[in-house]
Design a protein around this nucleic acid. Sequence first.
RNA 1: GUCCCCAUCGUCUAGCCUGGUCUAGGACAAAAGCUUUUCAAGCUUUCGACACCGGUUCAAAUCCGGUUGGGGACGCCA
Length: 451
Amino acid sequence: MVRVRFAPSPTGNLHIGGARTALFNWLYAKSQGGKFILRIEDTDTLRSKKEYLEEILFSLKWLGLDWDEIYYQSERFNIYKEYAEKLLSQGKAYKADKLTAETGEEQVSAPGEAHPKGEGQAIILKVLPGKVQIEDMIRGGIEFDTSVIKDQVLIKSDGSPTYNFACVVDDSLMNLTHIIRGDDHISNTPKQILLYRALGLAIPKFAHLPLILAKEGGRLSKRKGATAISEYRDMGYLAKSLVNFLMLLGWSPGENREILDINEAVKLFDIHHINKTAAILDMDKLSWLNNQYLKNEDPQKLVDALVPELAARNWIAKDNFDRNYLLSLVKLLQARLTVLSDFFERADFFFLDDFPVDPKAVEKFLSRDLSREFLLFSERLEKLEKFEVPEIEETFRQLVAELAIEAKALIHPIRVALTGKTVGPGLFELICCLGKIRTKKRLAKWIKKES
RNA sequence: GUCCCCAUCGUCUAGCCUGGUCUAGGACAAAAGCUUUUCAAGCUUUCGACACCGGUUCAAAUCCGGUUGGGGACGCCA
């Protein structure tokens, strides 16, 4: 049975690279009918934070990457110690003072000299000369000479295990069959294989994923754009577009497919078809994907997602709002949104009477006096018994025909008067949603009173 | 510096393993057009790549070597 894991360290939020690693592990597990295990690498007690842990778990769930088992390394220190002691007793490892190791000097501490408070001796693996071969599922054979590998610290002087050691002990104890992780771990792999050998443990299969690079080149970092999954969530990207986007980084479902959900991906996923080349994050494509999903998303769900923020802005009352109204707005705008949060600036006039007005738009379309036209249109709208799109449009078309002017000569000014913007949904849909009263009120502002 | 990895349009990629079907396919972006009431969406079209040099072969994007370029790792961090 295939068992894979994602092993984040709670010293930061879940970032793009980690999420993609988790996704590929998850896809591999599901496609093989195996298990996806989560292991929290919280051995660095100083840097590990509970908020990070919570954020990571939340983000994984949000992306739909559920796990079958979860472990915490901080609860397993005694196990690592035990394995290290075993190597010690077999003469494969030795003890050393921190100072000794750092200075590289043989033995300077005088007999009986006390170690720093709370500090014991580290346990270190002897690295013997030789070769290490890796058979990587993605890259093929990789060979290292152990001369480039220093003796490996297993247990630090404070008693905590090092990353590589805890990793090997756990990967083995948790019966992991495949280790799928980022390229940046390639140089850890020979070190870990040495540990498997020393401990006499079975070596799992390895697959090293290509890294995700920043647009400017080099590693993704805070300075080079958003890295945390939470940032994308906050920006209004949907989990499914992020998942879709991430799976396309280094892997292709074939047949020129671009849009597919995680369940389809499970069916098509083949780890051998992951490519070796590092990929650069293309925000434009993410945005395109998000728009694709947004316009096909169930409007009811989008309303649900919008309500908290709308309430926070005081645009609606939290417990008492017109859901159907919101629904009609969502339907009107969803195909025009890159991220869900675009809704707020595009729909502000639907909620506020004192909405922001683009001065350039006014300059361009409302500098001429349109009192007569606005008044006529307003009066005719008033008379409409059925205030629906076809009737509104009919009314409007009739008016411009009578006035012998082009439709757009009036459409644009009216849009600006009603929304404060030059861009937006079709005018008649917009008027319909806005309602008779508000439409008239906003037109009236631009009608000069004859005295 | 040492070691390791990688190399197809600006970007993500298909093809590469199993040479010929590749005058290299798709998507994003860009440009143009259609539609039209602006924007978005949609549809159509255009632009655009096998890093370089050598070798193997009747034949190389595909196999081999080198060069260059990019990336990663060298912690008692993970």
